[in-house]
Design a binder for these strands. Sequence first.
DNA 1: GTCCTTCCATCTGCAAAACAGATGGTTTGC
DNA 2: GCAAACCATCTGTTTTGCAGATGGAAGGAC
Lengths: 307, 307
Amino acid sequence: MLDGVSLDHLRTFIAAVDEGSFSAAARKLNRVQSAVSGWVSGLEDQFGVVLFDRSGRFPKLTPEGVLLLADARGIVSGVDTMKARAKLMASGLETELSVVVDVFFPTAVVSAAAKAFASRFPLTPLRLFVEGLGAAYQPVLDGRCSLGILATLPVAFPSLVSERLGEVPLVAVASSSHPLTRFNHRIPRHELAKHLQLVLTDRSDLMAGRDFGVVSPSTWRLADLSTKHAFLKDSIGWGGMPLHMVEKDIASGSLVVLDVDDMPPSGFMLTMSAYHQASEPPGPAGRWLIDHLKDSWVHPSDLKREQ
Amino acid sequence: MLDGVSLDHLRTFIAAVDEGSFSAAARKLNRVQSAVSGWVSGLEDQFGVVLFDRSGRFPKLTPEGVLLLADARGIVSGVDTMKARAKLMASGLETELSVVVDVFFPTAVVSAAAKAFASRFPLTPLRLFVEGLGAAYQPVLDGRCSLGILATLPVAFPSLVSERLGEVPLVAVASSSHPLTRFNHRIPRHELAKHLQLVLTDRSDLMAGRDFGVVSPSTWRLADLSTKHAFLKDSIGWGGMPLHMVEKDIASGSLVVLDVDDMPPSGFMLTMSAYHQASEPPGPAGRWLIDHLKDSWVHPSDLKREQ
DNA sequence: GTCCTTCCATCTGCAAAACAGATGGTTTGC
DNA sequence: GCAAACCATCTGTTTTGCAGATGGAAGGAC
């Protein structure tokens, strides 16, 4: 014994209190009464504190015992959660799940999934990162995140495996006061090129020098999507946005969808997929999260209220 | 043995990690190496989890081991607290001061007070716990702490006596890149409701099902305040924070105060009070601490530098 | 490359512990 | 006043954990 106090002391102590008598505690613990008696007095010796008043028929907790009982319960419950955590680990559950999500992915879906995740896997912390474009791939590639909810880029990543989740509609928008909105029919490409385009920059080097959907020679490059959103509403330029982020503005009229010539009328679709290293497939928690995202995203009706 | 895992398992585990090798742990624990080896592998058997990677010269913690180590440390320190408490009880003199402080209370004030306390009462050990919301009341209610520096909750605790210390200003903040910060005038409630709100969860059952200041239907619940802080800075959502924790970020511009419609411009004030059991008024040391907190908090100018 | 140290796992006998069961004293309810 | 249930203490037996020894592997020194 490394130390006078052991968990058996505490467990016996708690059982004695809960069962109301040493004998009952012994029955519960599958021991004989003398054993319980011994453990309890051993604990009292260790502490130098009398835990029970034994004058009556049933032992009664002393005031000191009440306080120490609270400590004991805390300790034992700590051990129990530790064991529960270990059991989950043994079954292959991830110790924590690090996920990077592309900014284009609907926040409402992520937040609902995170909430559901927290109640489904209360012992597995979820670490969420939000990044854009190529920068969102980086954590998956270098192993900081075991899972990425990412937009499919026209680049191959041989070390990654992906699983399609669905599409995010992209639309070209401009403020209602922007000159481009005067076109109520299809806007030709060369017309777009005359106006300032707001483009999301890629913070990573993965996509260095490659642009997607850049039409206009005059561009402003913004590092984050909500800034771009703000600039669009301020009529600084036009640009593409995921539909779910601008739906409200379109409904309220502050932003207008541009009907661009070589875009399908429904807008361009950005495929979102779950990515992970081929060498490290997701465990149960990651698997669950992917499936949950898939399911909750095809029926997103009840999430409309939220952002 | 009532249960597979014992405190000796945990203590050996911790020693092995801290000392860096089983042999060193054995020396520290005054045991032979084979004993440590046996205990560690016993613990691994119990958990069904491999705690150390033994392929190298020195055993190396596995990722699972890291997480379980945190549990183990918590448990063992709980036992130490319990023993310290028992020792004080046995000696009869109740010279120790156990205080629980709400996370919302300014850290700088607490640490300054603790420093002053140590030089004023060098022989009185001070035991500080930090908890949040309802969970911070629990130790005062069950007597484990004789004093609580707590936020006033809209719930009555008839067994407690309180004494007002002052107010902590709460402000609603969001990252500078968050869409809400574009409002430079008062933000209506319904606008806040459109965005993800970060909410501190209450670990205790005291406030079960009751929320304070929750405005948005979409929330993320975080178990600790520094995580919430990090998430706010990552622009994951908006939320309320005590002013003292975000002052630096506001000054540097990384966080922005949201001017919420039904909040006074100075922000909402959270009243902090010193609580103790009505039946057990604080002794001289507790009394001094309360008074010191009161005094040092109304003149907090010289604490600004500290966090 | 080879030696030498230091590490870990495993095995063995031995000592200490924790166990079940028995006994006796005490309280409580009938 | 008696039976039942409680607790403390004692005793022999079983189990557990201990130290010490042995062997294999890793890594630094030369």
